[in-house]
Simulated assay, not measured.
Amino acid sequence: MKLAKIAVFTSAFLIGHALACPMARSQSGGTTVELETPLASSHPLQGYLRRSAGTGPSPAVILLHSCNGNWRHIDERWGKRIASWGYATLSVDSFGPRGIKTCRESATNDFHVDAYRALHFLAQHPSIDPARIAAVGFAWGGLSILSAVERGTIERASPDKFRAAVAFYPPCANVKGDLTVPALILIGERDDLNSADECRNMMAGRDGWGISRRKDRDIPIKLVVYPDAYHAFDAPALKTPRDLSGHQFRIQPVGGRASGRGAA
């Protein structure tokens, strides 16, 4: 399974759930934007916005980086690609404005609120259709977006709503509640940082504590497990495998069929 195939699979999900748009091959460059003026928080939030090359209000995708704060790489890897599909994209920088480099340096764990701060920014933008905004997160960012769309106080309090969510290799054990939008989870069977089995348990409505989301809800969730993939399988820089803190990081190899599972 090459990155191109993963991209096609992801695009099919986004097109289906964020509503189809004309498939644009051209795209414009991006600009750095401040997401709140005046600031609604002691921590300002910024991002990199790429507008769709199409005419009229466009669908949009928010991109949430991992715990390593690699938002520029996320924009280069996925922001450009998704913009070429006819979406506007907003790659959120949760760490730079807070003066931190990793999530472990912060005393707060409310970064999933950043997803709604970005959503509110896009929903007010004249070139964006507020009813067609999805979010894609990576690892810790994947957990952030899944947490953001869990049924609960934060989701109910927001006047703006997401249309769909995609999580690449998230720590699924931390997802306990029912989700409110269609979601796609992509993870490698050999991921030794975030377990594919935890995602299977989440899909099945079970975990080690007997507390998890309920099965057979009306909101569809699809889990795709790549049998030969490790953590960060979509990162081109990992063509040469790396071992970080005892965990293996490498790009998805050619070959190996993904196994898919859906829950309604």
Rank of each mutant, 00 (worst) to 15 (best):
L143Y: 11
T89C: 07
R77D: 07
T108N: 12
G142A: 10
I128D: 06
Q124Y: 05
F138C: 06
S94E: 06
D129W: 07
G141M: 10
E105Y: 11
V136Q: 11
C103F: 07
A123Y: 04
R156V: 11
S91Y: 02
A107P: 05
A135Y: 00
C103L: 10
P126T: 11
L122R: 06
F95K: 09
A123T: 11
A107F: 06
A164H: 04
I100C: 11
A118E: 03
I154S: 03
D129H: 02
G86Q: 01
G86F: 02
K161S: 08
A164V: 04
V166I: 15
T102G: 04
E155N: 12
A134K: 08
L90V: 05
F162C: 08
P126A: 12
S147P: 00
E150M: 08
G99N: 13
I133F: 13
P130T: 10
I82K: 01
L122Q: 10
P170S: 03
D160N: 14
S91A: 15
K161Y: 04
F95D: 04
R151N: 15
G142L: 03
W140E: 09
D110E: 14
H112T: 01
P130L: 07
L146A: 09
S144M: 15
A123W: 05
A134Q: 00
G86D: 10
S127P: 00
A135F: 09
P126W: 10
A135P: 04
E150W: 01
G79Q: 07
R151E: 15
A148G: 09
S158A: 14
V149S: 07
A134D: 04
F111S: 01
S127C: 03
A83Y: 03
V92I: 15
A164C: 12
P170A: 05
R163D: 03
G86Y: 11
Y87P: 01
V136H: 03
A131K: 10
G137S: 12
I82A: 01
I145W: 04
L143W: 09
D93G: 03
F138E: 06
A115C: 15
R117F: 03
I128Y: 12
A115D: 13
R132Y: 06
S144C: 15
G152T: 09
A134V: 04
A165R: 00
S158V: 06
G152P: 04
R81G: 00
F121A: 01
P130E: 13
G99L: 07
A134H: 08
R104M: 10
P130V: 01
A131E: 14
Q124T: 13
Q124G: 12
E150G: 12
R104L: 14
C103N: 11
R163N: 08
A83K: 09
P126E: 14
L143M: 09
A167M: 06
F138M: 03
K80D: 12
S91N: 01
D129L: 06
I128V: 15
R98F: 05
P159A: 06
R104P: 00
L143S: 10
G96L: 13
G96W: 01
A148E: 05
N109A: 02
D129T: 03
